[in-house]
C-alpha cells in the first residue's frame, strides 16, 4: 500500500476508533457501577449481534490503526530495513486481529 494509502487508513480508522472507545469506556463504567460480575456481563452479551458487530468493528479498526503507528516508530527509531519494518508491522496487525477476534468470539458466542 502506498504511504498515502496508509495515512488514509490510519486517519479513517482513528475516526472510527474515537466514538468506539468512548462507548466502550462508558459501558465499562456503567457495568461496574452496579457491581455486575463477569458472568452476569457475559450472560448479557452472549448471542448479541449488536455487541458482536460493535466489538468486531473495534478490533478491525484497532488492528489497522495500531500497526501503522508502530511501523512509523520502528522506521524512525530502529536501524531495521524497510522490508523488515513492514513485515513486523503486518505481523503485529495480524496478532492484534487474532487476539481481538478470539475475545469477540468469547464475549458473544463461546
Amino acid at each position: 500500500m502506498s504511504e498515502r494509502g496508509l495515512f488514509l487508513a490510519q486517519r479513517l480508522s482513528a475516526l472510527l476508533l474515537g466514538p468506539l472507545v468512548l462507548v466502550h469506556l462508558a459501558v465499562i463504567l456503567y457495568a461496574v457501577r452496579n457491581g455486575l460480575t463477569a458472568g452476569e456481563i457475559l450472560a448479557r452479551t452472549h448471542g448479541s449481534a449488536g455487541w458482536g458487530l460493535f466489538y468486531g468493528l473495534f478490533v478491525l479498526a484497532a488492528s489497522v490503526h495500531a500497526p501503522i503507528g508502530v511501523r512509523n516508530v520502528l522506521a524512525e527509531w530502529t536501524p531495521l530495513s524497510k522490508g523488515t519494518v513492514d513485515a513486523l508491522a503486518a505481523l503485529f496487525g495480524a496478532f492484534l486481529l487474532v487476539l481481538g477476534a478470539r475475545a469477540v468470539f468469547a464475549v458473544v458466542m463461546a
Binding site: S2, E3, R4, L6, F7, N72
Partner: peptide, 10 residues
C-alpha cells in the same frame, strides 16, 4: 499526491 508519498507529510 507527491507531497503525501514516501518521505512526505506522513
Amino acid at each position: 499526491d507527491l507531497a503525501m508519498e514516501q518521505g512526505g507529510c506522513g
